[in-house]
């Protein structure tokens, strides 16, 4: 992905092989730069979603109980306005729903006020999206528009090209027939060994 010699560099040293390597470097370099943004999106989201057992990767939840000190008078809309004003909640509710004598739900985009108009008790609960991760996870889990699938497919294909071209960037003892080859084998052995060790699917 780093800055390499221009395409064709080394042609004088290795002839055709050098020209091919130069072209591969150009492809690898440009594709690598193109892939940086999506790699960060998928890597950050991958880490976040991998640890879903430990946290909600997309949202931060809150839940607070308030006692407004007795009955709240008025019709449902008036109660909703009064509670919002006393709790400092701004915005217009998307729904005010009377589920029963002691339950009025005031629903906002990211929070719901569950109001008991008889007792004056209000449960204020909701979710705030995590900065960037919310969008990254939405893309990663492919819940965006269907068009995103084509972007994700192109990115996956790009990674394959990056991996393939990367193997042939360097020749000699650090290349595919030296330490590079050994590292490729080690990298490939990890999933194979894991499947063998775990018993597989």
């Amino acid at each position: 992905m780093g800055e390499g010699p221009p395409a064709g560099a080394g042609a004088g040293r290795g002839g055709g092989r050098g020209a091919v390597r130069g072209a591969l470097r150009a492809v690898h370099r440009d594709l690598g730069h193109l892939a940086v943004g999506l790699t960060l999106v998928y890597a950050a989201s991958g880490l976040a979603v991998n640890h879903i057992a430990d946290w909600d990767p997309s949202f931060r939840s809150f839940d607070r109980t308030h006692d407004l000190g007795g009955p709240i008078e008025g019709d449902d809309a008036a109660i909703a306005r009064s509670v919002a004003a006393r709790l400092g909640v701004v915005g217009t509710p998307k729904d005010v729903y009377r589920a029963g004598p002691e339950q009025l739900d005031v629903v906002y985009e990211r929070r719901t006020l569950h109001v008991n108009p008889v007792s004056g008790r209000v449960v204020d609960e909701g979710q705030e999206p995590r900065f960037l991760l919310r969008a990254a996870n939405w893309l990663h889990l492919n819940r965006g528009k269907k068009a995103w699938r084509y972007v994700a497919d192109a990115y996956a294909a790009g990674l394959i090209v990056l991996a393939g071209s990367g193997m042939f960037l360097v020749g000699g003892r650090r290349g595919l027939f030296g330490r590079g080859g050994l590292l490729v084998l080690v990298g490939a052995a990890v999933p194979i060994a894991y499947v063998a060790w775990s018993g597989g699917p």
Binding site: S58, D105, Q127, W138, L141
Partner: peptide, 9 residues
């Protein structure tokens, strides 16, 4: 997590 739907009754 999960993609939230509309919570309005």
């Amino acid at each position: 997590g999960g993609e939230p739907g509309d919570p309005s009754p």
